[in-house]
Amino acid sequence: MPVRRGHVAPQNTFLDTIIRKFEGQSRKFIIANARVENCAVIYCNDGFCELCGYSRAEVMQRPCTCDFLHGPRTQRRAAAQIAQALLGAEERKVEIAFYRKDGSCFLCLVDVVPVKNEDGAVIMFILNFEVVMEKDMVGSPAHDTNHRGPPTSWLAPGRAKTFRLKLPALLALTARESSVRSGGAGGAGAPGAVVVDVDLTPAAPSSESLALDEVTAMDNHVAGLGPAEERRALVGPGSPPRSAPGQLPSPRAHSLNPDASGSSCSLARTRSRESCASVRRASSADDIEAMRAGVLPPPPRHASTGAMHPLRSGLLNSTSDSDLVRYRTISKIPQITLNFVDLKGDPFLASPTSDREIIAPKIKERTHNVTEKVTQVLSLGADVLPEYKLQAPRIHRWTILHYSPFKAVWDWLILLLVIYTAVFTPYSAAFLLKETEEGPPATECGYACQPLAVVDLIVDIMFIVDILINFRTTYVNANEEVVSHPGRIAVHYFKGWFLIDMVAAIPFDLLI
């Protein structure tokens, strides 16, 4: 008679799926529990143990900040960024110097990925580790590398530091407007667009060049630039800015003055950032001319202004700041037409079709709590990747769950009947059967004279019903998954307890 339990259901295979997918890609990662103190490590794979030199037993239950890997060259700011990422709910990448158990130093890129439950609360953290440099290539500990984003994938490793954006290309926007319009339909740009040429040739750093990471940081200074100062900065030398009595002219307006920039070969870094931020506020060169004239017309309804409409929906549905990093990277690809469009465009503009998908598509409701890094690593669709929660398995109709209350009560009843059979069957065979043979035949009273025979008949009927119930009862397979398919249940029961239950259900007393 089957006594099969499996009270692990309803099970959740999400954690096993993450481990299996990460292991298949030869990654070095740990999984931490966000619900406990210090976000203790609950799993670390073999790749991480080989990377740091510690065994799994030495890593388990330690804080996922990996303070046991810190050393003299470990930056405090990087460690603080990892700790801050564990307090938030967004994906974050941090470069930090770690030390192995043998004392060797290596520069590592740590990717902190939160995993949320159905309520939107962070319950786990996945920390992925990628070695960037070994100890002989690690720089000085005073050099802070965590304020910069990861290198873009479309640049060669040897040319990542030679990417320079020439400031004269930004200063000569109005001069290039006529050349853009003359391109017409034969050019790649839309009317009114501004073409910015980027020099990728390796050259020595000069005062006129600005690194790509500095251009990325310009967006942080746009908020500090007032509207009046932006307007004066875009007017140009024809209309000098008016300053109040006793007030000095704005240095932001002076930063885009061609006369002032041409007199000296070098520009201050602050002026460069502010000038680029001011130019980015204009949607095209037409807006710059309109600002000089004193009238700013409404933005025209053409394809170039609607190019950012799908980007707005993608940004609203993005799951991490990696989408913004990807957008900034692609927006700086050289030799393309940049349409400086305000994100607050007309909502009635139709979304044009684009061959290049900048932001990841909208994630469906079932995966809105899973970050983009987890979705990318697992390579699963929205119909396959579940949320991290207890999910009731989908069972067929008329199927009994093996952990249901009805099955528990039924098993206790069958257990009592088995005990009765084990006690009274030998007793009936030894004593009652002998008395029946010696006594007179009682054929007239039937079952009324033999109450134990009636009980034995009921017990046999219950055993037959138990066999039928076992054909529709779920079970737990070797992978700790609840199986509810009727065919698989029948095959599993035939290979197991079916023969024993059938022999126990045969009414031998009635056959004798």
Rank of each mutant, 00 (worst) to 15 (best):
P168V: 01
G47D: 05
S320W: 11
R76W: 05
A9V: 12
A169G: 15
P168H: 06
G345T: 14
V131K: 08
V94A: 06
N146R: 13
P240F: 15
P249A: 08
G306P: 14
Q247C: 10
E130A: 09
L155F: 06
E177I: 01
E90K: 08
L248M: 07
A282P: 07
A307S: 14
V94D: 01
D287A: 05
V222I: 11
G103Q: 07
I82G: 01
G345R: 06
L338N: 11
A9N: 09
G6Q: 14
V112P: 01
V122Y: 03
T367L: 15
N38V: 01
S278G: 09
L87K: 12
C52F: 13
P10Y: 08
S104N: 13
H309W: 12
V194E: 05
G381T: 05
T305S: 07
A382T: 01
V194D: 01
I19F: 03
C44S: 04
Q81N: 14
Q75D: 15
G120Q: 14
Q247S: 15
S278H: 15
V94R: 01
F48G: 01
P227S: 15
V215L: 08
M137C: 05
S275P: 14
E365R: 07
S284M: 09
G88S: 14
I330F: 12
T145I: 06
S354Q: 14
M291E: 14
V8C: 08
C265Q: 08
E50W: 01
S250A: 15
N117A: 14
S272F: 07
L167P: 15
S179M: 06
P352Q: 07
D16R: 11
D199G: 06
A97K: 12
T375R: 04
L256K: 14
R159I: 06
K332A: 07
V115F: 13
Q84L: 06
R77P: 15
I126N: 01
P347E: 11
P141R: 11
L256C: 15
E50C: 06
N12C: 08
D199V: 01
R159S: 08
L256F: 14
K116P: 12
A268Y: 12
P237E: 14
K166H: 07
I96C: 06
V215Q: 08
F129C: 01
R273Y: 12
Y43F: 13
D286T: 06
T13W: 14
G88D: 13
D219K: 15
V59P: 01
R273H: 09
S140Q: 14
R62N: 05
L248R: 11
M133R: 12
V41H: 01
L87A: 15
Q335N: 15
S55H: 07
A169S: 12
A169D: 06
P63L: 01
R20E: 09
T65V: 13
N220M: 07
I30P: 01
R176E: 06
A34W: 01
A78C: 12
I96K: 01
R35A: 06
H7Q: 10
S283G: 09
R312Y: 11
S26L: 07
S320Q: 11
R56C: 03
N12Q: 15
C105P: 15
I123M: 05
D219F: 04
F98Y: 14
G139E: 13
G192P: 05
T174K: 14
A78Q: 05
Q335A: 12
A190K: 08
A142M: 09
G306R: 12
